Simulated scan of single mutants.
Amino acid sequence: MHNPVTPASSYTTVRLTPGEVLITQGAPGGSLYVLEEGELGVIRDGVEIATVSRPFSVVGEMSVVLGTPTSATVRAIKETGCGCSPMPAARSPATPISPSAWPT
């Protein structure tokens, strides 16, 4: 069985400038991001609903775990760096990870 947990060593770093979009609302989910530095704005239906600035905060996880389109747009507010873990190739965005595959 495919292990859905990706080791941190396989992350790539994504660099964003202010205003640059990391995740677009309604797009297929596909990657999980871990904030390394900077600040992100979370926008849903055109309204900023949250900011994320604490290092090691995770964004994009809901669409990856639930297998649904992304529920919000995530945009850089400041110069930002995020670790990126792409969704396992063995899964499509419409196929949620089964709880039986979760690490124990």
Rank of each mutant, 00 (worst) to 15 (best):
M1Y: 10
H2V: 14
N3C: 06
P4L: 01
P4S: 04
V5C: 06
V5G: 02
V5H: 07
T6M: 13
T6A: 12
T6N: 10
A8K: 06
S9L: 13
Y11G: 08
T12G: 04
T12R: 11
T12L: 09
T13G: 06
T13I: 12
V14S: 03
V14H: 11
R15L: 11
R15I: 07
R15P: 02
L16Y: 01
L16S: 00
G19E: 10
V21H: 02
V21W: 00
V21A: 15
L22H: 02
L22C: 02
L22G: 04
I23R: 10
Q25S: 08
P28M: 02
P28C: 08
P28H: 02
G29Y: 09
G29Q: 09
G30Y: 04
S31D: 11
S31V: 08
S31W: 03
L32K: 02
L32V: 14
Y33D: 07
V34L: 12
E36M: 02
E36A: 03
E37Y: 04
E37S: 15
E37C: 01
E37F: 04
G38P: 12
G38Q: 04
L40I: 09
L40H: 09
G41Q: 09
G41F: 08
R44N: 08
R44W: 11
R44V: 15
G46M: 07
V47N: 07
V47T: 14
V47H: 12
E48K: 15
E48W: 05
E48I: 07
E48Y: 02
A50L: 05
A50R: 08
A50Y: 11
T51S: 13
V52T: 04
S53R: 12
R54A: 12
R54E: 14
P55M: 11
P55W: 08
F56R: 15
F56N: 14
F56I: 07
V59W: 04
V59L: 08
G60M: 09
G60D: 05
G60Y: 03
E61T: 06
M62K: 11
M62Q: 13
V64S: 06
V64P: 00
V65G: 07
V65N: 00
L66I: 02
L66M: 14
T68P: 00
P69K: 06
P69F: 10
T70E: 14
T70F: 07
T70M: 10
A72M: 03
A72I: 04
T73D: 12
T73A: 00
T73N: 01
T73Y: 00
V74Y: 00
V74L: 01
R75F: 02
R75I: 11
I77F: 05
I77E: 07
I77D: 03
I77M: 10
K78P: 00
K78S: 15
E79K: 14
E79L: 09
E79M: 14
T80W: 00
G83P: 01
G83F: 13
C84N: 14
S85E: 06
P86F: 11
M87A: 07
M87T: 06
P88M: 09
A89H: 03
A89V: 08
A89L: 11
A90Q: 12
A90E: 15
R91S: 05
S92A: 04
A94S: 10
T95E: 15
P96W: 00
P96S: 02
S98P: 00
S98N: 10
S98I: 05
S100P: 01
S100Q: 10
A101H: 14
A101L: 15
A101V: 01
W102H: 05
P103F: 11
T104I: 08
